[in-house]
Computed example of a mutant assay.
Amino acid sequence: MSEEKKPGKKRSHHLRVPVFDDEKEAIEAQAARAGMSVARYLREVGQGYQIKGVVDYEQVRELARINGDLGRLGGLLKLWLTDDVRTAQFGQSTILAVLSKIEATQEEMGKVMTKVVMPRSEP
């Protein structure tokens, strides 16, 4: 480990990089997506480190909620398919509505999944 990278040691050199407003916003957005400060992000990218994905825990919680919805809908559908007397009053249209809800929920889950692991180095 070089002397500059020892824990507790402060960095003493600063680099000045002039940027346009839109470049500044893009760099700040990329750093935020990576879960890093702008300084750390630029330092790591500048040294050739590959920026890896960061998990968005809010989206993971949303996926857990959606998964629970799918489980409940699947349980209801299973009950209907067993010809349980409690579900005798439900017709084909109700079952088709539940299947439609399951499909919509799967689509919602797919959208959330694309946001879960955010790429750190790609826009």
Rank of each mutant, 00 (worst) to 15 (best):
residue 4 E to T: 10
residue 4 E to H: 05
residue 5 K to Q: 12
residue 6 K to E: 08
residue 8 G to K: 01
residue 9 K to I: 07
residue 13 H to E: 09
residue 14 H to E: 11
residue 14 H to C: 14
residue 15 L to K: 12
residue 16 R to N: 15
residue 16 R to F: 15
residue 18 P to S: 15
residue 18 P to N: 13
residue 18 P to D: 15
residue 19 V to C: 14
residue 19 V to M: 09
residue 20 F to N: 07
residue 20 F to W: 02
residue 20 F to L: 09
residue 21 D to F: 07
residue 25 E to C: 10
residue 25 E to D: 13
residue 28 E to T: 13
residue 28 E to C: 14
residue 29 A to V: 10
residue 32 A to D: 06
residue 33 R to N: 13
residue 34 A to M: 06
residue 34 A to D: 01
residue 34 A to T: 01
residue 34 A to E: 02
residue 36 M to G: 00
residue 36 M to N: 02
residue 36 M to A: 00
residue 36 M to S: 03
residue 38 V to T: 13
residue 43 R to S: 02
residue 45 V to M: 12
residue 46 G to K: 05
residue 46 G to F: 08
residue 47 Q to H: 07
residue 47 Q to V: 09
residue 48 G to V: 04
residue 51 I to K: 04
residue 52 K to V: 15
residue 53 G to R: 00
residue 53 G to I: 03
residue 53 G to F: 00
residue 54 V to M: 08
residue 54 V to Y: 08
residue 55 V to N: 14
residue 55 V to F: 13
residue 56 D to W: 00
residue 59 Q to M: 10
residue 59 Q to A: 14
residue 60 V to T: 10
residue 61 R to P: 02
residue 62 E to L: 06
residue 63 L to W: 04
residue 63 L to T: 06
residue 65 R to P: 02
residue 67 N to F: 07
residue 67 N to M: 15
residue 68 G to F: 13
residue 72 R to S: 11
residue 73 L to H: 05
residue 73 L to P: 00
residue 74 G to E: 07
residue 74 G to W: 02
residue 75 G to F: 07
residue 76 L to A: 02
residue 76 L to D: 00
residue 76 L to E: 05
residue 79 L to E: 07
residue 80 W to I: 10
residue 80 W to A: 05
residue 81 L to S: 09
residue 82 T to G: 07
residue 84 D to P: 00
residue 84 D to Y: 08
residue 86 R to M: 03
residue 86 R to V: 01
residue 87 T to V: 11
residue 87 T to S: 12
residue 88 A to N: 07
residue 90 F to G: 02
residue 91 G to C: 08
residue 92 Q to N: 09
residue 96 L to A: 15
residue 99 L to Y: 07
residue 104 A to I: 04
residue 104 A to S: 10
residue 106 Q to G: 10
residue 107 E to K: 14
residue 107 E to T: 10
residue 108 E to L: 14
residue 112 V to Y: 01
residue 112 V to D: 01
residue 112 V to P: 01
residue 113 M to P: 05
residue 113 M to I: 11
residue 115 K to N: 09
residue 115 K to L: 15
residue 115 K to F: 04
residue 116 V to D: 01
residue 117 V to C: 10
residue 117 V to R: 03
residue 117 V to I: 15
residue 118 M to D: 05
residue 119 P to V: 00
residue 120 R to E: 06
residue 123 P to A: 08
